[in-house]
Write a protein that binds this DNA or RNA. Structure first.
Lengths: 339, 339
DNA sequence: TTGAAAGCGCTAACAG
DNA sequence: CTGTTAGCGCTTTCAA
């Protein structure tokens, strides 16, 4: 290996042994044409020299980079990092790498991430939409060009693109009924932006949950916010300032549940005595807050795994009808919602 | 562009216009040799056809992939994801991508991650050691081969490798003194594995802090644990079961601080009345737990930025003496440590 | 059984 | 001003 070069190439091996590059290539691929002894010798040298095939060269040749782009709304929320871990696990098994980008919940950065990832020649994308995203041209381009695409959690273009979601309507219904069973009657709900699939579905579950309990829907108890902590705090404030404030609230995700908890406490109200609270959060954080938070836990790691599996299915069989995987959630009851 | 091909190449453009590939290449690079009108025409077509240079080809040619490998102990802790965001931001400015791998706190996966990332021809690595790592051959190989390497938070081979850390000794001293000032005298400390730089340094700060307050060091108040939640719970248990248990505890990181909080509460003890608690955590989680947790906050995002900057410095000037950046922490006092 | 040559997409030295 | 050629590392015909 010449100095300055950090990786051994087939050429280096070929020169050292005194055979041609193609012989080395074949030997390393266990091609039957090459004599066993030559093969052995070459493989030994390759191991000794720490040879690994250059993925750039392979990529050029095969037009396949073995890289998947993953776009999430943010990196620091446990929900997404856990999903990423799931994706990574399955990808690794297949010898793929993932390139992670964050949209920061903005459409602009999402579009940029799509473009950047495509520039790097990822073989396809696994995406959770940003909360701002309500036009989908940047994804339609991919669909037209047959670039493998999978959505999870916040999805669009279902039917054209494989998706992994949880049964959001069911989850929201479970929460509403749980409140009812525990004696709460003025059930408030802090939703997200209307155009998000998860928000719509959970709102639907909230409404049908109320209905099935024989409760009337009161518009003032349904608050909306963008998914930021600050906005959620304000939304909670509005609910609590109502002439007849709710005796129970559920927040559409992690961020909102915690924000609501902060705001309730900061007003000197007790949970669950004055206001019960349920959120969508993970196991760990739910138990560390006080009172422990009743919550819908997502099977995040599995969501990631499933998304990756759908991705590979897509690569292997691009023409097949896209799958729609729906995972189940679990309502874990803790102190925050039981008087 | 032939069908089936997902990306336009110089050749495609060249054929379409009827010039040579090199003319197209030069035009796109604004080479002065090419006539202005030809340049304009080519650039227009390239834009229309959505041409982007193939990074694989460039990588092959230039022997530079513009990718950085990042290895962290885990992905789901806010501390690391926030650092990653910082790295990513600086990398993006330089037109670099990062490839993230998790060691899962094990040496075995760390070694594997190093090898895998090198296989993909990343230009170098930015790493936080796993808690198990006490032998460094896998990094020495990189150092010998002049492959750019930066360590952050948990570091080794200082002097040979640029590092970014916080002033851990100072931080631990701050905590100890804070306890003392607030009337606590039996100050317990839950450390991590001995071989970790952060653990050593914080222990040193704990000891010097005690000394400067005129307190005697009691060995039974210094507990060790691996950095898992369960182990931290046990360590806390041991402290609390002491004949003379501590009236204040500080935990070496996020995970441990939360675990300690759980264990203290589960024994029916009050914070801070029975036991005061201080941790190393981020802003957000510190305020959502109850009581709000006094803590040392790391400038995580800046740590990431700084690590990336050191990395590029290394690439640009491989011979320079490696920098050792030390960032400051802040003690944010909340309810958990003030009676 | 092995080698030579072409080609994946790109740049740069060399010709014209 | 533009085209030809070689080469980055690899696989795969085609020849021998």
């Amino acid at each position: 290996m010449e100095k300055g070069k950090r990786h051994v190439s087939l050429k280096d091996l070929a020169n050292e042994i005194g055979v041609s590059i193609s012989t080395v290539s074949r030997a390393l691929n266990n091609h039957p044409d090459i004599s066993p002894e030559v093969t052995r010798k070459i493989q030994q040298l390759a191991a000794a020299r720490n040879y690994t095939p250059n993925p750039l060269a392979m990529g050029l040749l095969k037009q396949a980079t073995r890289m998947i782009g993953v776009i999430v709304p943010d990196l620091v929320t446990h929900f997404y990092s856990s999903i990423i871990s799931g994706i990574e696990q399955v990808a690794e098994e297949k010898g793929y790498y993932i390139l992670i980008a964050s949209s920061n919940e903005t459409l602009q950065k999402e579009i940029k991430a799509v473009n950047n990832l495509l520039k790097t020649r990822v073989e396809g994308l696994i995406v959770c939409l940003s909360q701002e995203t309500r036009s989908y041209e940047h994804f339609d381009r991919l669909i037209q060009n047959q670039i493998p695409l999978v959505f999870f959690d916040r999805v669009c273009r279902m039917g054209e693109v494989p998706t992994v979601v949880v049964d959001n309507e069911d989850a929201a219904q479970k929460i509403t009924r749980h409140f009812y069973r525990n004696g709460f009657r003025r059930i408030g709900y802090i939703a997200g932006p209307d155009h998000l699939s998860i928000s719509q579905e959970r709102t639907r579950g909230y409404l049908s949950g109320l209905k099935s309990c024989g409760l009337e829907f009161r518009p003032e108890l349904l608050e909306k916010c963008n998914l930021s902590s600050n906005d959620a705090i304000e939304a909670t404030g509005r609910l609590l300032s109502l002439p007849e404030p709710p005796d129970a609230i559920f927040g559409i995700n992690d961020t909102i549940a915690f924000a609501a908890m902060k705001e309730i406490k900061s007003r000197g109200l007790r949970i669950p005595e004055d206001v019960a609270l349920v959120g969508f959060t993970d196991e760990f954080h739910s138990t560390v807050v006080d009172p422990a938070l009743t919550s819908i836990t997502h099977p995040t790691f599995e969501m990631g795994q499933e998304a990756a599996r759908l991705f590979f299915k897509r690569i292997e069989n691009p023409e097949a009808k896209p799958d729609q995987v729906v995972l189940n959630t679990k309502l874990v009851v803790r102190k925050s919602s039981v008087k």
